[in-house]
């Protein structure tokens, strides 16, 4: 009986590992999604035919680190949407676990702050699992190519969440490099963030 239980446990954990997946690495082709925006309409990457790429950001309402970056996220869209790299923000948290991240509260925040970019709700958590985002805020810079949307950068927005002594604006540098036809020098970074609470499958 005990053995059976252990076997079951191994089976269950391997399934869980499979579902969670390692997520994307730089160079992978990122899948498109169809997620509901705060205005009630759905948004996909294909809705941007003129885009050269995308700045996909997993972020949320409640996380103090995400909030610390909110104005920098808004600035990124203002800076790069017109150049072909719009910001697409995705909130991954299960509102049952974190009520502050409910679609209603997302809508409130986006309206109050006048977000110029979509703020999508990953209600199933599938997109977040596929991309492999673990914490907010977490950025994926994608470049549109004939093969698909290639992941060019994964990680933090810059090297100082507090914003008092920023030495490296990772996302800006990555997008600037792509805009001038080069590959980003720094392609993945890590930073402290709030762990994402996905809805259980």
């Amino acid at each position: 009986m005990k053995r059976l239980f252990v076997l079951l446990l191994i089976a269950a954990s391997s399934i869980a590992a499979k579902v969670a997946g390692p997520g994307y690495k730089v160079g992978d082709i990122a899948t498109d999604f169809k997620l509901k925006n705060v205005d009630g309409k759905t948004v996909s990457l294909t809705d941007y035919p003129a885009a050269k790429g995308y700045i996909v950001i997993f972020t949320c309402n409640h996380c103090p680190y995400a909030r610390a970056y909110e104005s920098r996220i808004m600035a990124l869209d203002k800076m790069y949407a017109s150049k072909g790299y719009p910001v697409i923000a995705i909130s991954p948290n299960d509102p049952a676990a974190i009520p502050e991240d409910s679609p209603e509260n997302m809508k409130k925040r986006a309206t109050e702050k006048k977000y110029s970019f979509p703020y999508l709700f990953d209600d199933t958590g599938l997109t977040t699992r596929t991309y492999g985002a673990k914490a907010t805020p977490h950025v994926y810079v994608l470049k549109k190519t004939a093969k698909g949307n290639v992941v060019q950068y994964i990680g933090a927005i810059d090297d100082d969440t507090e914003g008092t002594n920023i030495k490296n604006k990772y996302v800006e540098n990555a997008v600037n490099a792509l805009l001038s036809g080069k590959n980003p020098t720094i392609t993945s970074t890590k930073a402290i963030g709030c762990s994402i609470k996905l809805k259980a499958i």
């Binding site: 673990k134 914490a135 977490h138 933090a156 090297d159 969440t161 970074t189 890590k190 930073a191 402290i192 963030g193 709030c194 762990s195 994402i196």
Partner: peptide
Amino acid sequence: SSEQEFIDRIDKNWSGALP
């Protein structure tokens, strides 16, 4: 001095998510 270095030296597999 560097969040990135701190996280990586604790463990390569740590994404930086807390706890």
